[in-house]
Amino acid sequence: MQQNETLTFQKGLKDGLPICLGYISVSFAFGMMATQGGLPVWVALLISMTNLTSAGQFAGTQLILTGGLYIEIAVTTFVINIRYMLMSLSLSQKVDEAMTSLQRFVLSFGVTDEVFAVAMQQKGNINARYFSGLIAAPYAGWTLGTFLGAAATGLLPGSVRTALGIAIYGMFIAIIIPPAKKAKPIAKVILLSIVLSCIFKWAPYLNRISSGWVIIVCAVIASAYAALRYPVHEAEVQE
């Protein structure tokens, strides 16, 4: 395929700017959650700068704070972020064949839901220059937002901080409810997962299993059930 000459670094930066603005607010919430849980600002920053993923690092940080085991953190991170495999796979068909292995190693770090969505919207192949521009602004926004959120928490009174304990879950609800409204199978996956999770939380014996494993078991059962019952069409997969 031919190279698209209009896809410059600047064009990538420009396309990444809206993502950047969105990330500032989300990572602000992450920074607050991390420091509110007792982590210092630099740890919150380090997590954001090395992970660059919303749900994955929220869950991982939650496990750090609640004393999760290393294996739980590894498997939970893997299960939550496994969707990136599909995105990177799609992107591997989308990027310029001239992209070197080194460029692939570096740029794959920046594959997020939103970066993937914008990248796949481009016509033709994507080159390394455009891709790095597309990642740069969101990465800066993610880092800045985390710092601001983490720094702001220390200034808040206790009554506000206990109320903020729910913020992370509010964010998760904001992610899952709108798609559930549009697609019934997604709503059913969510309901099934919730029911399973509640059983693991409240049923005798089962409630001794640590939360990291519970998330994995619930997610695998609910997703496998839905995949068998409601297989998705090509277009729906690449959300």
Binding site: V79, S193, I194, C198, V214, I215, A222, V232, E236
Partner: peptide, 29 residues
């Protein structure tokens, strides 16, 4: 493989749902 594709498409929702419920009920005072 359609099953693998479908499974991966549903994973984010099932994971976030299981993480949120019932933990959200214990997240405040």
């Amino acid at each position: 493989n359609r099953f693998v594709k479908s499974f991966l498409a549903y994973v984010p929702y099932s994971v976030l749902a299981a993480m949120t419920f019932p933990e959200i009920l214990y997240s405040t005072a």
